[in-house]
């Protein structure tokens, strides 16, 4: 084990933990809020079951606005809001707020796209069988779109890791922040490289898992 890694063991483990918290909360937000939001976006589109021009326009606009913010500016812009919910704008907990918001916007768009890939006829057949909206969503749409939903989440998680690396600006910590403060700013290039390698490893693992799961559940 290289000496620098042993020397900074405690900090490295702590920063990995911080990254896990930030990315974990992002994933939760993506699944718990992004998935329903993306589904609603899809359903409120023209020609879909809950077609509603006003609802679609508003949702579409909000998602676009959040996604068009340069992320660093979004973090700054959200400081008052973060303070309102967390009580402070500094630290790992505070960092999860902007991350959760971008996560929701990011994943909801990918959910919408995956659902658009489901053949219309499948939804039509479901309705003709007397399926309610809830049945259509859970027993048909999600079943048919499941590999797209998994691949979308995989792409999103990797983006969340990337977003989490800049949360050092609000004291969020994480591997990226550690690599910058200890590796880059203190000229410990070797340490920085190791941190980049750790992130690369995470990304590879997530992509591999996501791709494999998506392939296994795709029977189309």
């Amino acid at each position: 084990m290289p000496e620098v890694l042993i020397q900074y063991q405690t900090e490295i483990w702590r920063s990995i933990g911080e990254t896990f918290i930030m990315v974990g909360v992002s994933i939760l937000a993506a699944v718990l809020v992004g998935l329903p939001l993306g589904t609603w976006l899809y359903l409120s589109r023209k020609g879909q079951l809950l077609e509603n021009r006003a609802v679609f326009s508003v949702l579409n606009l909000v998602v676009n606005i959040v996604r068009s913010f340069p992320f660093l500016l979004l973090v700054v812009f959200l400081i008052p809001f973060t303070r309102l919910i967390i009580g402070t704008a500094i630290g790992t907990a505070a960092a999860t707020v902007p991350l959760a918001i971008i996560a929701i916007a990011h994943y909801s768009r990918l959910v919408e796209q995956s659902l658009l890939d489901v053949p219309r006829g499948v939804v039509e057949a479901a309705v003709s069988m007397g399926a309610s909206i809830k049945d259509v969503i859970f027993k048909f749409l999600y079943v048919e779109a499941r590999s797209g939903l998994v691949l979308g989440l995989t792409t999103s998680i990797i983006s969340f890791i990337s977003y989490s690396t800049i949360m050092g600006v609000v004291g969020g910590g994480g591997i990226g922040d550690f690599a910058i403060r200890y590796g880059y700013q203190q000229f410990k290039t070797e340490l920085m490289m190791y941190m980049i390698f750790i992130m690369l490893l995470f990304v590879q693992m997530i992509q591999f898992t996501g791709t494999t799961v998506a392939r296994l559940i795709d029977k189309r």
Binding site: P119, G121, V122, E124, A125, V127, S128, M129, G130, F140, V143, E144, R146, I217, D218, K219, R220
Partner: peptide, 17 residues
């Protein structure tokens, strides 16, 4: 609708089931 069956040109089966 439960007692009105319907079939389609493109079959419309759920491919993942």
């Amino acid at each position: 609708r439960h007692v009105i069956g319907m079939i389609f040109q493109q079959f419309n089966l759920v491919a993942n089931k």
